[in-house]
Amino acid sequence: MHKKIMYICVVMSNSKLYKGSLNTIILKLLNEQDKMYGYEITQKVKELTKGELKITEGALYPALHKLEAQGLLDVEVAKVDNRLRKYYKLTENGTKETANKLEELAEYIKTMQTLVNPKLA
């Protein structure tokens, strides 16, 4: 199973297929962390995937703002060091949507596996 996931990750980072899964990744991380700020999200993904998957800055903020506009994320601002930091956290709707998105992604990965590697599936 672990191998399968690594395989998908490598495919995604190479061909930027992850773009469609970006929202799911953000929601999933916030589901586990309570609240996070933009830079923290990019670092966390890098750390979890050991550098295989890098969320680009140019894609992260548009995705965060879109999710906020959809009412899935809420914001909080705090003064950290000598600057303001914007934190994102899931709303009630966001929590529900996370479960849906994860299910969709799992289904997608399963389908992809039957296509790219029928033996494994």
Binding site: E57, G58, Y61, H65, K66, A69
Partner: peptide, 22 residues
């Protein structure tokens, strides 16, 4: 540079769309 060739443009555009929605 990590923001790519369009710099902050995509963030600006999406932010304005999101705010319009709000």
């Amino acid at each position: 540079k990590k923001f790519g060739i369009f710099g902050f443009m995509e963030a600006i555009e999406q932010k304005s769309k999101a705010m319009n929605k709000r």
